[in-house]
């Protein structure tokens, strides 16, 4: 009996976000490295990422999502940095946003 492949959910995507954070941390001083946790702030108030780091992070996570799930996503579409969307606010909001994108594209 054939079964439909399970779509990647939040729990599947969060480790990919952490992996991108690990990679990004290599570009940052040891005492400024981000801790991989759901509430790690990526964008907005109290974020320590500058615009270059945030851009690098977006490229990194798009590549990792493609490698992990075989799907191309574009995190720069639909004004992801707007306060209304809040997609890029934390690791958790980003993982939820990516899992939604993956579902939409399935």
């Amino acid at each position: 009996m054939n079964s439909t492949p399970k779509l990647p959910g939040y729990e599947d995507v969060l480790p990919v976000v952490y992996k991108a954070l690990d990679e990004l941390n290599q570009q940052r001083p040891r005492n400024q490295r981000l801790t991989a946790s759901p509430d790690c702030v990526l964008f907005g108030e109290s974020s320590s990422l500058n615009s270059l780091e945030l851009s690098n992070f977006i490229v990194l996570i798009e590549q990792l999502v493609n490698e992990q799930f075989g799907t191309e996503i574009d995190l720069t579409e639909n004004d992801p940095f707007s306060p209304e969307s809040g997609h890029m606010r934390t690791a958790a909001t980003l993982a939820a946003h990516i899992s939604n994108l993956l579902r939409e594209q399935a």
Partner: peptide, 22 residues
């Protein structure tokens, strides 16, 4: 395959992905 990254170019004016730069 992620060595040359048009997305990096448009976002950061770097034509290479992070792995090349590292």
């Amino acid at each position: 395959k992620t060595a040359n990254s048009p997305k990096s170019w448009y976002l950061t004016k770097t034509p290479y992905g992070a792995e090349v730069l590292k």
